[in-house]
């Protein structure tokens, strides 16, 4: 009887270790999947410009109340995605790409573009991209699906309305493959 309880305990602990490993390994993709699904429900075809974060903002943990966030989804399983940034003036802005496992695999900010807007093409693995104009950056995505996140810093409360207008120039659109 004692042996059976020992056996039971060992099997249960092994099972718990397996569940622990699976939860840690797959939690990022599951959580990201939920975020992408919620975003897709909202409107998957256009760039969404979120309101400034408050305590009522419950979609993404630890939002910054000093930033304006805009997002679009990418799914490069069929076509690359062309991302055109806005260029809000006199403040920090950036565009960051996130893979399905939450990795931030690309980021570009206003200092790097000298304040100019930028065009970036996100391509799937092994996907051919037709030659683009000068200055266009081509980035290979580590996963077919993911998120594009534009950040605009509210560096002056008096400029909130102006910055909100400027950031809305950001766009994402599917690019036809050659």
């Amino acid at each position: 009887m004692t042996f059976n309880w020992l056996q039971f305990g060992m099997i249960t602990l092994c099972g718990a270790a397996l569940v622990h490993w699976a939860a840690i390994a797959y939690a990022p993709e599951l959580i990201m999947d939920r975020v992408l699904a919620a975003r897709a429900e909202q409107d998957s075809q256009t760039t969404a410009h979120a309101e400034r974060a408050t305590a009522a903002s419950r979609r993404i943990v630890r939002p910054s109340p000093d930033l304006l966030y805009s997002t679009c989804l990418f799914d490069v399983s069929r076509h690359p995605l062309k991302v055109m940034t806005a260029a809000p003036t006199g403040t920090y802005w950036s565009v960051a790409f996130y893979a399905a496992n939450t990795d931030n695999f690309f980021v570009l900010n206003d200092t790097q573009t000298q304040g100019n807007p930028a065009t970036i093409v996100i391509a799937g693995r092994g996907q051919a991209v037709a030659p683009q104009g000068p200055g266009v950056i081509v980035v290979s995505a580590p996963s077919d699906k993911g998120l594009v996140l534009f950040r605009t810093l509210i560096n002056n409360e008096a400029r909130l309305s102006e910055l909100d207008q400027q950031r809305r120039a950001a766009k994402c659109e599917a690019l036809q493959t050659p």
């Binding site: 990022p28 939450t102 931030n104 695999f105 980021v107």
Partner: peptide
């Protein structure tokens, strides 16, 4: 945090407590 070198525990922690973090260079 947020970078492509993150281990599985870091990824899980970031997903739960700070999803969509930027990588350290930014």
């Amino acid at each position: 945090s947020g970078g492509v070198d993150a281990g599985m525990y870091t990824r899980a922690r970031v997903a739960i407590t700070g999803l969509l973090a930027l990588n350290q260079s930014e």
